[in-house]
Design a protein around this nucleic acid. Structure first.
Lengths: 262, 262
DNA sequence: CATACTGTATTGCACTCCGATACAGGTGCA
DNA sequence: TGCACCTGTATCGGAGTGCAATACAGTATG
């Protein structure tokens, strides 16, 4: 980090339309992504590369607007309720999610296992909708939760629809770490999975995120043919024989994905 | 609307810390709350009371940051994925929701009906977590969805913990409309429900939001004793005799609420 | 074919945001 | 006890940034 390059670019060079104050403010909100507890002004300033003064003004403003609030003990700040209003508008207005509504419920009804819709965001797949089944962990069920693209059934399904050079780029840039003993972190092993998806039309992932879990993923493309999301169906290996799971679930998931893609 | 008062206050008079550009930007994001489809620059400008130029710059910036995107057909703008990252941080870092995790799952497991956690936001109760049961409507299950405080079991439970004058204020300011034929819109009828809550410790709502639905709500207070949220358990009148529902569910919901309040 | 709407680009001026600095209150280490 | 350092809060002059007006290209809609 001894480079002279600025760690934080307030704007791209010569972008006269970019509103600096807004860019900084969103960096403040995003600072909480790496936080595990309330952030003080000094911490916010450090994390975003702005001065404490600027952080003060931005936090003050975001607080008045309901996007941040002071932590219960008066030390540090946290995201606040107004954030959820944005969430709802995003989900409600997103055309893909609107179209996904009926097929996902139908799928959930027939398979009776957990059904998720996740959105492709480069290195991550972000959950936009979750229809639980039985046992659940809580935070894993939160909207906005994301999992790595390289080690999920949905991520493999999405990558299978990308040209090879983009897949290579993605895998090269991935910060791979094994989440379970069985998580694939070898790029070639992942490429092999992608090849399988291109044959089968779906991905099957064994214990990549959680031990005991099997997941089947199918990608959803936009009208131009680019993958933008994926459906997952996740279940317990204690209850399913893998080939049976694939045979039963794959056609239903594929049908749902097709209905959403349109 | 012939008054000379400005319809949009960029800042409170003499608040030297308030960042105008940021206030405007958040107004732009919030403009989508009343939208049913993508908004054009002109519409955003009109909805927020800023000029088209300012809207252009703000939209441009929010777009570069991933909070807005152009609609699929190139006409108008929509909230974009980055919003969900904020969502997750809010849910993940919120102390109340952290504490609620285990009790809610436990409650869901025992009652086997829909269990929600909603946050008190004045006139609205905003859903922060939803654990579905069987049949569901989709949009109703989205995080960030909100329902009026005055006609939900959770809202009644929350109001029961407020002093009477605050209840009166809330009801006076409420824009009451019946969502079903049975929705209570008479302030006195609602006050009667609140009185019941103060006796029973929970609220029971019949078909206030949706015909055929019964809901039981219990409030959650902060350490200072102010209500901040509510647990709902919702079920079908086709499957439950109301008194049986109350008898079975109320103690369990109350226990969960207590565990969360701490 | 004209009109009105899209989104995009440019420019000079003034006001707004900038960052340094100071302050009050609490915590913790010596 | 007291000093050092952390909280969040408040003030202020200067300069840089966001402001609004205006122009432009492309596309529906009448």
């Amino acid at each position: 980090m001894s480079s002279a390059a600025p760690e934080f670019a307030d704007e791209l060079p010569d972008d006269p339309l970019f509103v600096q104050a807004l860019g900084r403010a969103m960096r403040v909100m995003e600072a909480f992504q790496k936080a595990e507890r309330p952030l003080s002004l000094a911490e916010i300033a450090a994390a975003t590369g702005i001065t404490r003064s600027a952080a003060q003004r931005i936090v003050h403003t975001l607080r008045k607007l309901g996007y941040l609030r002071m932590a219960p003990d008066g030390r540090g700040f946290l995201p606040d309720l107004a954030v959820l209003n944005l969430t709802y508008d995003y989900l409600r207005l997103n055309p893909l999610i609107r179209r996904a509504s009926a097929p996902l419920l139908e799928l959930r009804r027939t398979v009776r296992e957990r059904v998720d819709l996740s959105l492709f965001d480069g290195q991550r797949m972000v959950y936009a909708s979750r229809l639980q089944s039985k046992r659940e962990m809580f935070f894993a069920t939160l909207v906005g939760h994301s999992v790595p693209t390289y080690c999920t059934s949905g991520g493999w399904a999405v990558m299978a629809m990308l040209p090879d050079d983009e897949v290579d780029q993605l895998l090269a840039a991935a910060d791979m770490r094994a989440l379970t003993p069985r998580t694939l972190t070898d790029p070639d092993a992942i490429r092999a999975q992608i090849a399988l998806v291109r044959q089968n039309g779906h991905a099957l992932a064994f214990e990549q995120i959680l031990m005991g879990e099997i997941a089947l993923g199918v990608a959803i493309a936009d009208p131009a043919g680019r993958p933008v999301a994926a459906i997952h169906v996740a279940a317990s290996l204690a209850e399913w024989e893998p080939e049976e799971f694939r045979r039963r679930i794959a056609p239903l998931a594929a049908e749902a994905a097709l209905a959403i893609s349109r």
